[in-house]
Nucleic acid binder design. Structure first.
Length: 261
DNA sequence: TTCCATGTTCCGCA
DNA sequence: TTGCGGAACATGGA
């Protein structure tokens, strides 16, 4: 379930479990997950080395390999990480790092929209992809966000979904952000006030931080979040009106027509 | 059985 | 030329 908060949890998971152990070998049960690298090349880049640090930008995770390139992980719609000691190999494993002492880190992905690769330098990757600022990075300033939004046309939902404007929001948390700022997902950028854009900026950071905190401590999201009411006909937590469902920017969208304008 | 899915990329059109 | 909207991708789970 990977948007920015989930990828941040994966980053912490790698930090907690998988650093500083020697990699004995890399297995690739399904090479279709690889992008621009072969299974033997991936093994050569990692074998005998250790993972030493992590870096995340939006939904992109980079894991530094000592004296080598960075391991790049993208989780697509169904990517997941699982650290385990012997026992069962996770069902949808696509790439498995075998550490010493029978420890393993599996990258799983049932639906194959994710990707595993090697990159020389995360900064270069981010620049080449022209990714927008990461909303939890200190460079995500209100003026930067406002200018990035104002440079675009179309509906606010579509624009917030673009990784070139802000890196890391996806369908769920765009809906959540718009819900909490009472902005209709179809509102054109040109019709947003500066105050609303400032509110969006604050709300994006707050929503993502709340999701990370709750996820980290294994708690449900607040009942005041739209995300806990994503079903047509559910009652809006703010006003009790029925939650509506529509396809906007090509994705299923939930919103409250009573107060999102 | 049928429908739906938290992402990204590519294609056609304006 | 640039940018937007929608389809395609591959597959499991409800």
């Amino acid at each position: 379930m990977p948007e920015l908060p989930e990828v941040e949890i994966y980053r912490r998971y790698v930090e907690k479990h998988a650093l500083r152990q020697r990699i004995e070998r890399v297995r690739v049960p399904d090479r279709r997950i690889l992008r621009g690298v072969t299974a033997p090349a991936l093994d050569r880049a990692l074998r005998g080395r250790r993972l030493v640090s992590t870096r995340r930008h939006g939904k992109h995770l980079f894991v530094q390999v000592e004296r080598s390139e960075w391991l790049y992980l993208h989780f697509g719609m169904t990517g997941d990480l699982h650290y385990y000691s012997d026992g069962e190999t996770p069902r949808f494993s696509k790439v498995i790092l075998d550490f010493t002492r029978n420890r393993h880190l599996a990258f799983e992905d049932a639906r194959l929209f994710g990707a595993v690769s090697l990159v020389h330098e995360p900064e270069e990757f981010i620049a080449r992809k022209r990714l927008g600022a990461d909303p939890l990075d200190e460079t995500f300033k209100p003026a930067l966000f406002r200018d990035a939004l104002r440079a675009r046309r179309g509906a606010i939902k579509a624009v917030l979904m673009s990784q070139l404007v802000v890196a890391g929001l996806g369908n769920l948390y765009v809906d959540e952000t718009l819900y909490q700022t009472s902005i209709h997902p179809l509102r054109p950028i040109a019709k947003l006030t500066d105050a609303e854009i400032a509110s969006l900026h604050r709300t994006i950071k707050r929503v993502l931080n709340v999701v990370i905190e709750r996820n980290e401590s294994n708690r449900d999201l607040p009942r005041s979040f739209l995300t806990t009411h994503r079903a047509e006909g559910e009652s809006c937590p703010k006003c009790g009106a029925p939650i509506l469902r529509a396809v906007i920017a090509g994705r299923t969208t939930y919103y409250c027509d009573a107060h999102q304008r």
